[in-house]
Write a protein that binds this DNA or RNA. Structure first.
Lengths: 239, 239
DNA sequence: TCGCTTCCGTGCGTTAGCGTACACGGCATG
DNA sequence: CATGCCGTGTACGCTAACGCACGGAAGCGA
């Protein structure tokens, strides 16, 4: 059905008024994003912003030695490329597709123009950016204070919230890159979760069996972020 | 001399056009901020934004158990209270004075009004916010990957950049709270720096003796943040 | 001068996570 | 069917940082 390819599956686009949406709609270009694809490189000017509909994009900080850490994750609730409307044009971080799917993209100049009209979109984007800031801040805290077990639960839940299914295609190696830890560490923590019956996985496919169980093990960071997202992004579809 | 109390010691205010500055100037209220004073509490609506001139403000994430971690630091280059113009009104983090001094504050409604005029100030604030985001992201990475020794160097250098002198009034206990580590850990790391002749300290007073030496020991995170601040905030005084 | 608090030093056992190495089984590819 | 790679399991020593405990010394107030 047609709705499968509706840009308004993205929550930001869905919250626009009819007029504003109509202005943008002709310029929205659907793109299929493959796992591992890069949407933004450190220091490079992005040509588009991306509105995910059913994919997940990780924002990663990469260090000189190649090690990386995920600082935030973006799904249908958000947008990739905030530096375009924030005015900096580039960021020092990368944006990598963590879960394949599709998104709609818009040329950089168009989002800037719309943003500068001080439209509803501007307010939406700013509130979204503030939510993103909260996610980054909480990630910093979590990295400092919480165990790998807890961080894995947080990561699984954040991913799950942005996914239509209970299954994610993701090797332990990749999760380790996201969390900035060893692959073996993920194996151990994931093993605990599997033995506890909360998840099951096999060669790059993880199924969440007991979401409530994960929520019982996760640190407070997950709830803080979720609450703030709900608070800042609980707008109603207006158009 | 009068300049000592010039709001335009704050870089954001300094970058405004004459007109814009004149609009705000009558409403700028000078406040002296004491060490440890709180400018923002988690979840509470701020009544003012603050433009520091010679003080330093830490943005802290506080957890349920009371442990905290600094996620960013703000000096004369910035502003405290971005949630007011970003639209969220509140944040889950605290803002605490880390180094006493003065700031100018502006009622929340006034900054919102000026922001919504799509003025120069809007662009400045957005670029500043992006710089702040970079600092938070890099803090997350640093928490994950770098040693306490390196993080202490980073913290000292970030503070030093926002201070007129080479001396900071700060106990090791407080630094530990900022970094989210044990006090004893700070004692050890600071001891190394002192034995190496880079700093000297005594009962809550730290003097930086060899800034270059600190820069040689710090991790890349410091440079990444500094470079991004320079890039995003290198505007010229226009009015 | 006494006494108290604050700040810093140090030592010790514990632990989470690291680096490394290796083994095993699926799955794909030839 | 053989080969090879990829994803996962496991083990072992190592280190940074932790929690805790205590001691000393500097400063402050009475």
């Amino acid at each position: 059905m047609a709705l499968q390819h509706d840009p308004r599956q993205n929550h930001l686009l869905a919250a626009l008024s009819r007029d504003e949406y109509q202005r943008l709609a002709p310029h929205l270009e659907r793109v299929d994003l493959r796992l591992g694809e890069s949407l933004a490189e450190s220091g490079k000017v992005m040509r588009h912003v991306y509105f995910p509909v059913d994919c997940i994009v990780s924002l990663l900080c990469v260090m000189e030695d190649g090690d990386s850490t995920e600082i935030a994750v973006v799904g249908a609730e958000g947008i990739v490329g905030i530096s375009l409307f924030m005015g900096g044009e580039t960021t020092p971080s990368r944006a990598v597709v963590q879960s394949a799917g599709s998104a709609y993209r818009l040329k950089g100049q168009l989002i800037k123009d719309e943003f500068d009209r001080a439209s509803t979109l501007q307010h939406l984007l700013l509130r979204y950016t503030q939510a993103l800031i909260t996610q980054m801040a909480q990630t910093a805290v979590c990295n400092r204070h919480h165990s790998l077990d807890q961080q894995l639960c947080r990561w699984l839940l954040l991913s799950l919230d942005r996914l239509p299914t209970n299954e994610l295609v993701m090797t332990q190696e990749l999760i380790a890159n996201m969390l900035g830890v060893r692959r073996e560490g993920v194996t151990e923590s994931a093993g605990k979760l599997q033995r506890a019956g909360l998840i099951s996985y096999h060669r790059g496919h993880i199924s969440i069996l007991d979401r409530t169980g994960l929520e019982a093990r996760v640190c407070e960071c997950y709830a803080v972020v979720k609450k703030e997202y709900d608070r800042l992004l609980s707008y109603h579809r207006t158009g």
